[in-house]
Simulated assay, not measured.
Amino acid sequence: MIERLSSEEFIKRLRKIGELRYHDKHPYHVRMHEGKLSPEQLRAWVANRFYYQKNIPVKDALILSKLPTREDRRDWIQRIIDHDGREGNDGGIEAWIRLGEAVDIPREEMLDERHVLPAVRFAVDAYVNFCRLQPWPIAVASSLTELFAPTLVSSRIAVFEQLYPWIRPEGLEYFRARLHQAPRDADHGLTLVIRECATLKEQEQAMAALSFKCDVLWSLLDALSLAFPNKE
Rank of each mutant, 00 (worst) to 15 (best):
E3N: 12
R4Y: 06
R4A: 15
L5G: 04
S6Y: 05
S7A: 13
S7C: 02
E8G: 04
F10V: 02
K12M: 06
R13V: 02
R13P: 00
L14N: 02
L14G: 02
L14Q: 02
K16L: 12
I17W: 03
I17T: 02
L20R: 11
R21T: 05
R21W: 13
Y22C: 10
Y22L: 14
Y22H: 15
H23C: 09
H23R: 09
H26T: 08
H26D: 11
P27G: 11
Y28D: 03
H29R: 13
V30A: 07
R31N: 14
M32T: 05
H33D: 10
H33K: 13
E34G: 14
K36H: 10
K36T: 04
K36S: 11
K36A: 11
L37Q: 04
S38W: 04
S38M: 06
P39R: 10
P39I: 09
E40N: 06
Q41Y: 09
Q41W: 07
Q41F: 05
Q41K: 06
L42F: 15
R43P: 07
R43H: 09
R43W: 11
A44G: 13
W45Q: 07
V46T: 11
A47R: 00
N48S: 05
R49I: 00
F50E: 01
Q53E: 15
K54Q: 08
K54R: 12
N55T: 01
V58C: 01
D60Q: 09
D60C: 07
I63V: 15
I63K: 05
L64V: 08
